[in-house]
Structures are given as structure tokens and as C-alpha cells.
Design a protein around this nucleic acid. Structure first.
Lengths: 226, 226
DNA sequence: CGAATGCTTGACGGTACTCAAAGATTGTGG
DNA sequence: CCACAATCTTTGAGTACCGTCAAGCATTCG
């Protein structure tokens, strides 16, 4: 299903231009109804939920090409927040027009469903990780997973992948404490399994990591353009 | 968007009749590509993932009206299994026709996306639970959550909800061991917070449960018919 | 140069896991 | 209808993984 000029023009008509947000800022606040839908253009972000005493769980990370805020279309109250991990640029997609899009361009509606299903798979995997893997396995999982996602969209150079998370993000994504995350990271590093510095990640021994995490490389179809 | 006779007929045309499966059987095996898509008619099921040494994580429970196997449409390899918790009846939906449906009945494509987004919200909540709640909070969460879902589809009578899970299911859904799940359940029961017997669940003190689990009742739109 | 943020390490304690075994319940076949 | 197996529940004992607390170090930034 190649994308023609006509389709591009059509997408453009839905958009309200590109906008930006600096790292650390909130794109969608957690407990307020969000009226907007976005496509992430550049940079990293993450979805999260928090408990009243501050415990936070990162649900999944968002990379360029991901759709942001789709779930909100279907409830009256936002159930998760979205925060920029790096400076990001994104474009808004008017929520009211979503239905129009399904009607006039069903193949794009299909693509949106594809994106939703794909995101759910990420959360599925993260749930398995938080629920059933031990600390070592969790950290290994995160490293491989993010490295691979970065690779797929060209964010890896000479084996070094962009890696903008601080350890608190890793802890919140994995359901671990900050301290234990740190100790586990150091342990993996001493085993010569990865290097992590200056916001870059290199997998020195990917085979070992894959074994620890029981990683299965899963081929994906082309990512739809939105 | 009321459902007319025409729509019903249209849905019927997609279906290949109602089928059944006894409790405990596998509807979709975990590591094999699934070619089919189902709608659950009656009974309970659950989606799950396992690790090679047998550790299992239940991703979410499926109740009548839920769509089963949508995610598989979009990958080459199934990433999760689906197992019947009770005897179930379901109807098959030919995968090849999914695209047809988006094209010819965009409003139903929209509904499918709705269902996908809604299921992701369940998994989001479960991830928060497994990642950041302690045992007591986890069990409380599960009890409230399933009680409420049962209620919404009329499976509650005199406060007693259908509850077909054994403790191993609860453990696997919550990321706890069987033993600890049992001890936590007994503790809640002794506090006079719930009763659980004969496959039925009654919330004696729902307020207390809600406080423990930080449950927020979230209104939902009408569930689309499929 | 001081403040803020993030990383690292050690000590200690507790929540949750494992192992083990005894009841309770359900199902099945003789 | 009873006996036996299978499954599920319950409880206790011991342990370990991971969390909390605390403090020192490194880096960045204004």
C-alpha cells in the first residue's frame, strides 16, 4: 500500500502544523480530559500512571512515528499522562476529525488500529516484565527493547543508540526502586554486557542480553505513515 | 448510533456461526500464528504470556462482548495465548474480511478501534498494579475490577458476582506467588472486606476496597456491538 | 562557587518467594 | 455410593530478593 501524493495532501489537511515541547514537560496531563491527538515527529516521550503517594509506572515509551493520546478518544477522563523525555516535535490532529478520517479514508483508519494494536503489544510485554521477570531480566529487557526500537528508526550509529533515559525512568518503567535499578545496571555492566554513557547505549554482548531477557526478535510490518 | 437490522445482517454475513470451548482449553496458542479473530459470546477467558521456565503472566481477562485476537492481525507471530476460563461460546470472524469491514462499514472499523483502545487501558491498569502496587493493593484491585466488569454485563445477582478464577489465576494476573496471593486474600477476608465462595464474589465493604486499591470508577461509553 | 540533579555504594529490614505438608473439595470409576 | 485421584486451598518455616534509608561523589548549570 504505497503512499501517494494525494494521501499526503490529505493527511496534511488534517494537521494543525508542527509544535514543540522541551524535555521534561507534560504533553498530556494525567487526570484531565485531553482534547487532542498527536503524532510524534521527533524526540522521545513516555506514557505513565501514578498513584496518590507518588509511585509512578511508565507504561511505554513513545518514539517518532507513534500516535499519542488515542486512548483518550474513547473515555471521558484521561487515564494516563504523557511526558516528553527529550525535546520533542509533534503535530496535532483534531480529535473531532478522527471519525471523518475513518469514513473518508478507511485504509487510514485501519492503520490507526494497527498502531493501537502494536502499542498494546508493547504494554503486554512490559506487563510480563514487571509481573514475572526478576531485576536482572527486567533491565536486560529494557536495554534490548529500546536499543532495537531505536535501531528500527535509525537512531543507532556505530552500535551506539540514543538513550535519553535517566535511571529513575528505567526504574519506573520496570517497577523497581531506583537503587536496585542502579545496582543491577552496574552488575550487567561489570559483566561486560553493555555500556551506557553520555546518553548513548551500546550492547557489547547482545547474545547474552537476549538470553537473560528471553528476547524474541519479532518482525514487524511496515509502519504506517500518519 | 443505534444498530439497525441492516447492520445486524451485515455482521452476520461476516460470521461463521457460533462455536464453543470447554473451560481450561486453549483458544489461541501462545507461539503460533493465529489466523482467526473471535468475538466472545458467553463465558470468561484470559490472555496470557509465559516465559520458558513456566512463569506465566495473565494480561487481562475477557468477558462476553470482547474481541479476541485482534493484535494477531498485525504481527506475523502470535505474542500471547488465550485460554478459556469457563466454558465459552464465541463466533469466528474471518481475518481476511477485516479490511473489507473497515472499507464498507467504517463506523464498525471505528468501533473495533474503540475496543482495542479500551483493552489497552485494561492492560495499562494491570501494569500499574504489577509494577507499583503491593500485594494487598493488588488483590483489592483485582476484586473490585472484576466485580465491576461483571456488574456491567449483568453477571451480578444480589451483590454476588460470578467469579470463576482459582487462586493461581489471581496470582498470575497480579504477578504474585500462589502462596502469597492466598495469604493476602485471607487477610482481606478476615478484615470483613469480601467473601469468596463457590465461584462467587461479594464485596462486603466496597469503600474499604476502593480506598486500598485507589480505584477510580470510570464511566464508559456504550460498548459497541460486534 | 553553590545548588540542583543524577549516580553509586553500604547497611539493614521487610515483603514476598520457595519449600513442604496437611486439609478441603471435586470429579471419576469401580 | 464409596474410594481414590486430582485439583485447589491453607498454613508454617525459612530465605532471598528487593526496598528504604543514608551518605558520598560526579556533573551540570546559573
Amino acid at each position: 500500500m504505497p503512499v501517494g501524493k494525494e494521501d499526503l495532501a490529505f493527511i496534511e489537511a488534517f494537521r494543525s502544523g508542527v509544535d514543540t515541547l522541551p524535555a521534561g514537560e507534560t504533553l498530556i496531563p494525567e487526570f484531565r480530559a485531553s482534547t487532542k491527538l498527536y503524532t510524534l515527529y521527533s524526540g522521545w516521550a513516555f506514557r505513565f500512571k501514578t498513584l496518590s503517594d507518588g509511585r509512578r509506572q511508565i507504561l511505554n515509551f513513545l518514539l517518532p512515528g507513534d500516535l499519542v493520546g488515542l486512548q483518550d478518544e474513547f473515555v471521558d477522563q484521561s487515564t494516563h499522562g504523557v511526558e516528553a523525555l527529550t525535546d520533542i516535535s509533534f503535530c496535532e490532529f483534531p480529535r473531532e476529525k478522527l471519525w471523518d478520517l475513518f469514513r473518508t479514508k478507511p485504509e487510514m483508519g485501519y492503520d490507526i488500529t494497527w498502531l493501537a494494536a502494536r502499542e498494546e503489544q508493547l504494554v503486554d510485554e512490559n506487563l510480563l516484565t514487571a509481573g514475572r521477570r526478576n531485576a536482572m531480566e527486567r533491565v536486560a529487557m529494557l536495554l534490548i527493547h529500546l536499543h532495537q526500537r531505536a535501531q528500527r528508526i535509525g537512531l543507532v550509529e556505530d552500535g551506539w543508540a540514543e538513550f535519553p533515559l535517566v535511571q529513575q525512568h528505567m526504574a519506573d518503567a520496570l517497577g523497581l526502586s531506583l537503587v536496585h535499578t542502579n545496582k543491577t545496571l552496574r552488575r550487567l555492566q561489570k559483566l561486560g554486557i553493555h555500556e551506557l554513557q553520555g546518553g548513548k547505549l551500546r550492547l557489547v554482548n547482545p547474545k547474552a542480553l537476549q538470553r537473560i531477557a528471553e528476547w524474541v526478535d519479532r518482525p514487524n510490518r511496515r509502519v504506517p505513515l500518519l
